[in-house]
Every structure is written in structure tokens, then in C-alpha cells.
Nucleic acid binder design. Structure first.
Lengths: 230, 230
DNA sequence: ACAGGCTTTTAACCTTAATTAACATTCCTT
DNA sequence: AAGGAATGTTAATTAAGGTTAAAAGCCTGT
């Protein structure tokens, strides 16, 4: 992966700067926000690969930021930074959708390990060379091919990218925005209609298999439902 | 997911038994090993979904077990249990291939959260959840489908979410506020009327089955009453 | 350079879901 | 029993998305 991006929410400027610079020295691209109010907006704008949130912030604490982020993205790893160490804080952190927890004062070494650990665990575009089995279908993302029994259909670039995003998020909801950004790179009005066209194509491809369905969630996105039951 | 399996390596029999039983009470299937020498063999035999390793063991410490496990499997999540708290131990743990770290003494609550967190993170895709049987009806939340005898009705997002909340709280009272928050995300006046509309739709769906009823509790909420008698 | 075949975008028109509104009903309060 | 708030019901409206086809863009080979 090339330069993972990190959203770092921290209100202490001194600590913040040190951490930001240390992370950048390790080739992370860091966006730092010092006011909790701006954090969620920055998140949706910059779509970082991982978030590091201080829990003690003016205006809005780390937990509520995490919850807000989870509204739009239930995958991005979140690490909480806290001064406290009580079990109930850890519990609260996990309940808010956090994935790890580090206590102040922490060593950069440890933070970096935890970041890399989470990035490795959540790497979604891990091995797109492998075939992806979707009920009766086989999708070869690297070859842009979709097989069904004896039929091999060559996919175009957009078709393949869209199917890849959906496959990687199968059985969960993926927002239109996310799809548009990964497949088209932006989410303007016209691309938006474009997506509709391609969704329609994919539905057509999968029509022969009732176990596969692309469910529309109006105003939100899609859910690629694949029923693996025999 | 049905009953994740856990390999638990712990040499203190007293602690071990408590933890094993607590985990089993939460529907994990736990294999406990007390001697480090046997751990790796047990791992290859039982292919657990996750490992919990104490680092202080006779014969073979947790770190070397982790390294051995990583030889054959680089995906399975590993949690270390340790009495120490030094950064260098954490570093050592991650270097050995661990994914999380919990310090003795720990609360079961926290361990369970960390286990679930890692299982969720490593679960490649969302897994289809079970169908919900409601008297004569079958509700498939991830397919947005409601079956009654031969009829399959496709549900919209709001219909499905509302029905899900009600089913999960069947035969108990759910407040309007809770429903509004889970289905619509907020509970303003207009959404409130919206809920009435959808409740009306659901009642319509279930009209053919007298065992199912949505009871209004004025000023409070609803009770989704399902009589399971044959 | 341009013809032919492809993919992608744009456009037009259609369908459906979600919201809002309007009016009816229930039920609690006094 | 009257009045009012909460909810039920149905219909109208609005916005999102589905479908299909035509237009535009892009390679590739000659």
C-alpha cells in the first residue's frame, strides 16, 4: 500500500505536532484536526485509511466522533488515545466503534505498531489477483472476467471496478459516495447517474442466480447480497 | 457467525477455568491448553478462529507459540495476555505476530470486547444473518425479504429496518424514540409521522396472520406481539 | 487519418421509495 | 361527554434511482 492516510484528532498542539511529525517520518500522510467539531467533516472529505482520536477534546469527545464516523463508514479502523485506563473507558471505546486503545503517555513505537497492525488486519484490497466466488459465479478481478458455468464474460474497466467494490463489501451496506469515489474518483451529479447505469448492467449479469442481489438503499447506497447457502 | 472457536493457552488452572467458562457462557467454543509445547499442535489440529495466549508459560512462552502459529497461518487473530505493561513487551508481542494485548488482571468484559473486535475485523465479509421466523412468516433481514407461504415480498430499506427492530424486540415494548433513532437516525416531528405510516404498512403485511399484531402503546411506543403457538 | 468496434457518458423517460399532507380515528384527560 | 393530543390511514408530492438508447470518446489496425 502506498502511504496510508491517517486522520489524527488531537487538541494539544505540542503533543499533536510531535506525533504528526513522527508518523510522517514513517511515511504516513497525516491530517491533523484540533477541534472535534471539524473532525467528522474532515473525515468524509479526506476518507483516511485509519483514525487516531483523542478522547478528551473540547466541544465533542472522541467517542461521539467515532460514533459519527461509524454512521458513514463501518470499516475504517479507529484507535482511541486516552489518559485514563479504566476498563469502563475501554468498554466505552469499543462500544463507540473503536478498534484499539492506547494510553497516554505512549511511545511512538507502540502507536506505530498498533497502526500497522490494524492496517494489516483491515487491508481490503489485499489480493485482488485471487478469484472471488460469488454463489454460482466466479469473478477474476485481475482478468476482468466473470464466469458462470460455461460462460465467461469479459468485463469492462468500470464494470470490474464496481463489482470489485461491491464484492469486497458484500453483505454490508456501501454508500453511493464510497462507490463513486473508488470507481470514478469523484461524486458529482453526472457520475452519480452513471453509477445507476452500471448497477443496472451488473444486475443483468447476475439475473440467472437468485442468490445474488443488489439491493438499493435509497438515499444511502447499495448492499450486495450474496447468499452462500446451498 | 455460529460459535467462534478459540484456542486458549494458559498454565494457571484456576484463572484458566474461570476464563474458559466465561467465554463458553458467551457462546464461544474454547479449547484450553496448559502446556506451551502442546499449543502449536493443538492449533494445527483444531484450526481455531482466534488464539488467546498467555506469555508466561512453562516450556515455551507465548511469543514463540505465536511465531510458530504464524508459520502456518498469517491471518488468525492472536491476543496476548501478560502481567507486564512495558512498551517493549507490547513491541515484542506485535513483532511475534500478535494483534492485541491485554494485561492481567483483566475484566472478562474487556477480553470479550477485544475478541469480538478482532473477529469482526478479520471477518472478510459481512456474513448473512439468520432468517427470523415470525409465526407463519419468515423474515430475511439481509435479503430484505418477507415470505409468507408461497409469497415473497420485497421490503424497502425502511420497511426492513423497522421490521428488524420490532422483531428483535418482539413481545416486549419498544419506545417510539428508540425505533426512530435506529431506523431514521433522529426523532424529529416529521419522522415521527413517518413511523406511523410504516407501522401501518407492516400491519397490512401481517394482516393474513392473526398470531401477529403490532400493538400501540400510546405515548410510549409499540409492542410487536408474535404468538408462537402451533 | 479514419473506419470499426468497443466503452463510457449523457440524456430521456419511467418506476418506485420516502416524505409530506390531509383527514379520520382512538383514547386519555378533565 | 367534550376536547385535545397521539396515532391510523390513505393519498399526493417529491426525490432517487432504473432502464434504455443515443451520443461521445477511445483504441487499434490499416
Amino acid at each position: 500500500m502506498s502511504n496510508p492516510t491517517i486522520l489524527y484528532v488531537e487538541d494539544e498542539p505540542f503533543l499533536g505536532r510531535i506525533v504528526k511529525e513522527s508518523l510522517e517520518a514513517r511515511n504516513f500522510t497525516v491530517t491533523m484536526v484540533s477541534d472535534g467539531k471539524d473532525a467528522v467533516k474532515k473525515f468524509t472529505d479526506s476518507r483516511p485509511d485509519l483514525c487516531v482520536l483523542d478522547v478528551m477534546l473540547p466541544n465533542k469527545d472522541g467517542y461521539s466522533i467515532a460514533q459519527a464516523i461509524r454512521q458513514s463508514n463501518d470499516k475504517v479502523p479507529i484507535i482511541f488515545v486516552t489518559a485514563k485506563t479504566l476498563t469502563e473507558d475501554v468498554v466505552k471505546g469499543f462500544e463507540a466503534g473503536g478498534n484499539d486503545y492506547i494510553r497516554k503517555p505512549f511511545s511512538m513505537e507502540e502507536l506505530i505498531l498498533r497502526i500497522n497492525n490494524l492496517l494489516r488486519l483491515t487491508q481490503r484490497y489485499g489480493s485482488p489477483s485471487e478469484k472471488i466466488v460469488l454463489s454460482e459465479f466466479e469473478f477474476h478481478p485481475d482478468r476482468y472476467e466473470l464466469r458462470h458455468q460455461e460462460n465467461v464474460r469479459k468485463l469492462s474497466h468500470r464494470e470490474a471496478m464496481l463489482l470489485l467494490v461491491l464484492s469486497q463489501n458484500r453483505n454490508t451496506t456501501v454508500s453511493r459516495k464510497e462507490v463513486l469515489l473508488t470507481v470514478w474518483g469523484d461524486d458529482t451529479f453526472f457520475n452519480s447517474r452513471n453509477l445507476d447505469v452500471y448497477i443496472s448492467k451488473l444486475r443483468d449479469f447476475f439475473k440467472p442466480d437468485p442468490a445474488i442481489e443488489i439491493i438499493t438503499i435509497k438515499g444511502v447506497g447499495y448492499r450486495f447480497s450474496v447468499d452462500e447457502q446451498a
